[in-house]
Amino acid sequence: MNLLGFLTRRGSAPVARERLQILLAHERAAFGRSDLVTVLRKEILAVIAKHMAIDGEKVKVTMDRGGDVSTLEIDIELPTTPATPALATA
């Protein structure tokens, strides 16, 4: 190795770090690295709660990421007697 190469050498780890940051930004977008399901569930629950009283346990959100198709399954069990909506209709 020449002198300049020796002085400027920082090893291969910084390259590894940069490659990982770029790759994982893509993969997280593709596979959804986040608590997306949790967030969705909370927001769906909030929307429904505006209109009827609902048990938090009765909202199920599942996401299945496949190669070609991904599905989002939302399963909401409604109370037998729809409670009065929290929002009055004008």
């Binding site: 790759l23 994982l24 993969e27 596979f31 959804g32 690295r33 399901v37 949790t38 346990e57 959100v61």
Partner: peptide, 24 residues
Amino acid sequence: VSSVRDSDRIIGLLDAKTARAEKG
């Protein structure tokens, strides 16, 4: 690198496929 990448995938699964995650 490959271990860090796979850890990232597993973290995603922990937030999606566990009983806790499904209960929100």
